[in-house]
Design a protein around this nucleic acid. Structure first.
Length: 626
DNA sequence: ATAGGGTTAG
C-alpha cells in the first residue's frame, strides 16, 4: 500500500498547505483524482500553489496523465481569479505535453501564451522551448529560441541537451561555443552529450579543461559515459576519485558506480558501497537504488544477496525492482524461479512492462522452456497489450534456435514487422553452429556481415561454423578476409578473484613470470588428471586462436582455463572460484570446468558474456544448454 | 514552477 492511499481515508485537507503536502505524497493519478474531487468545491483549489502542484503531480505521476493536466488548465483558464496559478502551472503542463508528444495541444497552449502577459515569463517561455525539444521538433525550437527576447542560460542549456538528444551534434557544439555565459549545467550537458554521441576522449578533454571538480553531476556523467562506452574500469576509477576528492555522492552517482561495478563483477567493492549506504541510513526505497543493488549483486554472481535486497524492500515494490530481480534470476539460468516470481508479481497486481517480458523470454530461452516462452510471448501482446520489439523477437529466435527448432526461428525472422539487425542474424547463426546447419548459418552470417562488416564476432562465428563442419579451407578464407579488412578478433580475457583482488588473464599476452609458471604448472597437472578421467581437448573450439600459436613463450589456451588453473593453485579451501570472461565460454572450456568441479571437488562460478555457469560436482547449472 | 547525471534487456 502506498503512502497516499493510507492518508486518503482521512477527511479533505483543511487548508492549502495540507493540500500541497497531500498532493506531494501521491504516486498514482487515481489518488490525485480523489483528492482533487474532494476539494473541487472549496476555494483551496484556486490557490495558485495548489493548482500548480496538481498539474505537476499529474504530469509526474505514473503514466503522465496529460488529460488531467489539460482539464485543470481549462478550469484555471475559466476562473479569472487564478492568473497566478496559471503561471505556475504552465511549466508542468508544457512538460506533460512534451512527454506525451502532444504536439497539437502544445501548439495551442503556445499560441494562447503568446496572446497573454505570460509570454514575458522566462519560466513559461523556457518550458515552451523545452517542450518542442522533448518532442524532437528541433526546427520549431530553433525558431522559438531565435525569437526569444528573454533568452537566458537555461534556454541555451536546453538547446544544447535537446540538440544532442535529436542527434544534431554539430548544432549542440556550436551552441555551446557561441553562448555568452556558460554555467556548470552547460558543461555537464556537453560532457554527457559528447559521451553519448561523440566519444569518451572528447568528453574527457572538456572534463579536464573544466577546473571546477566539485559538482557531483559532472562526475556522474563521466562515470556513466565510460560505462556506456564499454570502459567500466575507467568509470570505477573516476568514481573512486570522486569519493576521494570529497564530493558527496547522491543516488544517481551511487547508481552509476554500482553499474560500473556490476559490469566488472567486483563483488567486494559492491558490498562496500552497500555497507556505506547502510551506515548512512540511506533508504533503498527511494529511486532506483534497490534495483541497482539487485542488478549489481546478480551480475557479481551473488544471486542470494540480490534476493535479500529484493525481499528487504519494505514499501510497495515497483516495476524496476521486479525487473532487476527477474533479469538476475534469468542471468543465473534459474528459469523456473523467474517464472514463479513473475506469477507472484502478477498476483500483487504489478503491471509488467516490455523489460519484464525480455527477462521472462530470456529466462525461458536460457532454460530451454520452449512452450512457456511461446506462451508468454503470446500473452505479452494479447493480455498485456505490449507489442514485441526487436529484442523480444531476438529472444524468441534464441529460444527456438537453441532448442534446435530452426524452422520456427527462421519463421520469426520472416514474419517480424521490423527489419532484422545483425544481432538477430548472429543469434540464428549461433544456433546453426550448435546444431550443425551449415547452409542456413552461412546465409545468416552473410546478412550479419552486410549489416556489421567491422564486427569481429560475425567472422568468428562463421569461422566456428566451418570449423565444426570440418571445412578448413573456408576457415582459412575467413581469416584472410579478416586480415584484409583489418578486423581483429576481440581478445579473450578472464579474471579471477582471489582474496579480494582481481587477477586478469589474456590469450596470447605476456604475464608476470611467477604467475605464468604457476599457471603453466597447474594447467599441466590438471589436464593430465582430467585426461585420465576421459577428457579430450576439443580442438575445433580452439581453432580461432591459432594465430597466437606462433608467439613463443605464451600460453595458448583460452583465458578461462588459465584463470581456473590460477584459482585452483591459489584459492582458499572450500571457497568457490569466481571467474569472469568477456566472451562466451566455448564447449571445450565448459567440459573442462565441469570435470574440474568433480575431480578437484571445487565449485566454479563463471560469468561469460551471456550468463552465469555454476559448476559443481561435475555438472553445470545451465544443464549444458547455453 | 524552466536547463545537467540514474537500474532493468542484448
Amino acid at each position: 500500500m502506498s503512502t497516499a492511499s493510507a492518508t486518503l481515508s482521512t477527511a479533505a485537507p483543511a487548508d492549502h498547505r495540507a493540500a500541497v503536502s497531500l498532493v506531494e505524497k501521491c504516486r498514482l493519478a487515481t489518488e490525485l483524482r480523489q483528492i482533487h474531487g474532494r476539494i473541487i468545491k472549496s476555494d483551496i483549489l484556486s490557490h495558485p500553489l495548489v493548482a500548480s502542484r496538481f498539474v505537476s503531480a499529474f504530469s509526474l505521476s505514473e503514466g503522465n496523465s496529460l488529460p488531467d493536466c489539460l482539464l485543470l488548465y481549462s478550469q484555471m483558464m475559466a476562473s479569472l481569479g487564478n492568473r497566478q496559478g496559471l503561471g505556475f502551472s504552465l511549466p508542468s503542463l508544457l512538460k506533460s505535453c512534451g512527454k506525451a508528444s502532444a504536439l497539437e495541444e502544445g501548439r495551442q497552449i503556445h499560441a494562447q501564451v503568446l496572446k497573454s502577459h505570460l509570454r514575458e515569463d522566462p519560466f513559461v517561455s523556457n518550458s515552451i522551448l523545452r517542450m518542442y525539444l522533448e518532442m524532437g521538433e528541433v526546427e520549431v525550437a530553433l525558431k522559438v529560441f531565435d525569437k526569444m527576447f528573454n533568452r537566458d542560460v537555461i534556454s541555451w542549456n536546453s538547446m544544447i541537451s535537446g540538440c544532442f538528444k535529436s542527434g544534431k551534434i554539430d548544432l549542440a557544439c556550436r551552441m555551446f561555443d557561441e553562448m555568452p555565459h556558460k554555467d556548470i549545467v552547460s558543461v555537464n550537458s556537453m560532457v554527457d552529450g559528447l559521451m553519448k554521441h561523440v566519444g569518451c576522449d572528447f568528453a574527457r578533454e572538456l572534463f579536464e579543461k573544466n577546473r571546477d571538480k566539485s559538482d557531483v553531476v559532472t562526475w556522474t556523467s563521466m562515470v556513466s559515459g565510460y560505462t556506456l562506452n564499454g570502459h567500466p574500469k575507467e568509470a570505477l576509477k573516476l568514481f573512486r576519485e570522486m569519493l576521494r576528492s570529497g564530493v558527496d555522492p547522491d543516488v544517481a552517482a551511487i547508481v552509476n558506480g554500482l553499474s560500473a561495478i556490476a559490469d566488472l563483477g567486483f563483488a567486494e567493492e559492491g558490498r562496500w558501497i552497500h555497507a556505506m549506504l547502510h551506515r548512512s541510513s540511506t533508504s533503498l526505497n527511494s529511486g532506483i537504488l534497490a534495483s541497482a543493488l539487485i542488478d549489481m549483486y546478480s551480475k557479481c554472481g551473488l544471486i542470494g544477496d540480490a534476493c535479500s535486497v529484493f525481499r528487504s524492500i519494505s514499501s510497495r515494490r515497483r516495476i524496476v525492482d521486479w525487473n532487476s530481480m527477474l533479469s538476475g534470476l534469468a542471468l543465473h539460468g534459474l528459469g523456473r524461479e523467474t517464472l514463479d516470481l513473475f506469477n507472484e508479481m502478477l498476483r500483487m497486481d504489478v503491471n509488467p512492462d516490455e523489460v519484464t517480458f525480455l527477462a521472462i523470454l530470456s529466462a525461458c530461452s536460457h532454460s530451454g522452456l520452449v512452450d512457456e516462452g511461446q506462451h508468454y510471448f503470446k500473452i505479452m501482446h494479447e493480455e498485456f497489450n505490449i507489442s514485441p520489439r526487436i529484442k523480444h523477437y531476438g529472444c524468441m529466435i534464441d529460444l527456438f534456435g537453441r532448442a534446435g527448432l530452426l524452422e520456427n526461428a527462421t519463421r520469426i525472422i520472416d514474419e517480424m514487422p521490423v527489419e532484422p539487425d545483425s544481432m538477430i542474424w548472429k543469434s540464428l547463426l549461433s544456433s546453426c553452429i550448435k546444431h550443425g546447419y551449415v547452409a542456413i548459418g552461412e546465409a545468416a552470417a552473410m546478412k550479419a556481415l552486410e549489416l556489421a562488416p567491422l564486427d569481429s564476432s560475425c567472422y568468428v562465428l562463421l569461422s566456428n561454423l566451418y570449423a565444426n563442419a570440418g571445412k578448413w579451407s573456408n576457415v582459412a578464407k575467413i581469416r584472410a578476409v579478416m586480415k584484409a579488412r583489418k578486423v581483429r578478433k576481440n581478445p579473450g580475457c578472464s579474471s579471477v578473484m582471489i582474496g579480494g583482488s582481481i587477477h586478469e588473464f589474456f590469450v596470447g599476452k605476456e604475464m608476470g613470470t611467477t604467475c605464468r609458471e604457476v599457471v603453466r604448472a597447474k594447467l599441466e597437472e590438471v589436464i593430465g588428471r582430467l585426461k585420465m578421467e576421459g577428457y579430450r581437448a576439443d580442438l575445433n573450439q580452439v581453432i580461432v586462436d591459432v594465430d597466437e600459436e606462433e608467439k613463443e613463450g605464451l600460453l595458448v589456451v583460452h583465458s578461462e582455463k588459465m584463470a581456473i588453473a590460477f584459482g585452483l593453485a591459489s584459492i582458499d579451501e572450500g571457497a568457490p572460484i569466481r571467474v569472469m570472461k568477456n566472451l562466451r565460454v566455448c564447449g571445450d572450456c565448459h567440459s573442462f570446468s565441469k570435470l574440474v568441479s568433480r575431480v578437484y571437488n571445487q565449485e566454479i562460478i563463471l560469468r561469460d558474456q551471456n550468463r552465469f555457469h555454476h559448476f559443481k560436482g561435475g555438472t553445470c547449472s545451465c544443464n549444458d544448454y547455453w
